[in-house]
Amino acid sequence: MKLQTIEYYFREVIISMIRNRWMSFASIGTVAVSLFILGVFLIIVMNMGKMASSLESQVQISAYLNDEISKEERADIERMTRDLSAVSKVEYIPKESALKILRERLGDNRKILDALGESNPLPNSFLVTVTSADAVKTTAAAISDLYGVEEVKYGQDVASNLFNLTHLMRFFGVVLTVILSGATIFIIANTIRLTVFARRKEIAIMKYVGATDWFIRIPFILEGIGLGIIGGTLSAIFLRNFYSAMAEKIYTTLAFFPMIEQYPFMNYVTLSLILAGIFVGILGSTVSLKRFLQV
């Protein structure tokens, strides 16, 4: 394509955006808000996925013991657990230690434990480390069958719940994407329609003197893309600030939460949002041209 032609296209796009500034503003705003909401969903879903995976890959099993069993029975459980093929380490955690750990974890809220007085509701337990994540489920099942073991807990339980929740969020994400994309495309299509309408006489003249359909269409499609890029970029800027604020808050309050590192993750998100903006821009302008530009 010749430089003059490219120059012509860009001039047309900028003139048209300024001429329809309110509609352009509405389009950019809609794209930005829609993509921001989608972006928030995206980062939540991806972080939940990461948390679920990291929980799933944890290779520790807690086996809670019945309070009634004797020392010998407890030693049997420990021996039999050690004999399981995938087990690499077994650590006994008496109920006193468990309470101490809980007290530490609660931090400033430890006072609530004062209500317990001298009693300790926590059971004795074994913390069993397994050699690989794959063996966790079968090992946990084997341990739970042992006499005196009350309950077995491991990361996969929580992980599978979290995965279910992630799937649900993903589903809502898709529904939301469809609705928001529809709204965005509709607004962009209307903006482009106004441009087409404002320039219908010019378009007719262009046709008479031999402009091809694509020559006429390209400025409008570029305008759609322009609106999409600006909207997408704005949403990315908001989202980057949102994520770093969130990250800061989470690191200070929920330090154990395995959040996805801000970079390069947010760079990918930014790129995706801008690409999504371009996509809705092209779609919106094409829809409009199909309906309103009889060329």
């Binding site: 046709k207 008479y208 003197v209 031999g210 402009a211 091809t212 359909d213 694509w214 020559f215 060329v295």
Partner: peptide
């Protein structure tokens, strides 16, 4: 349409 546009041109 495009071929006709070129002829018009």
């Amino acid at each position: 349409d495009d071929e006709l546009a070129i002829i018009r041109n």
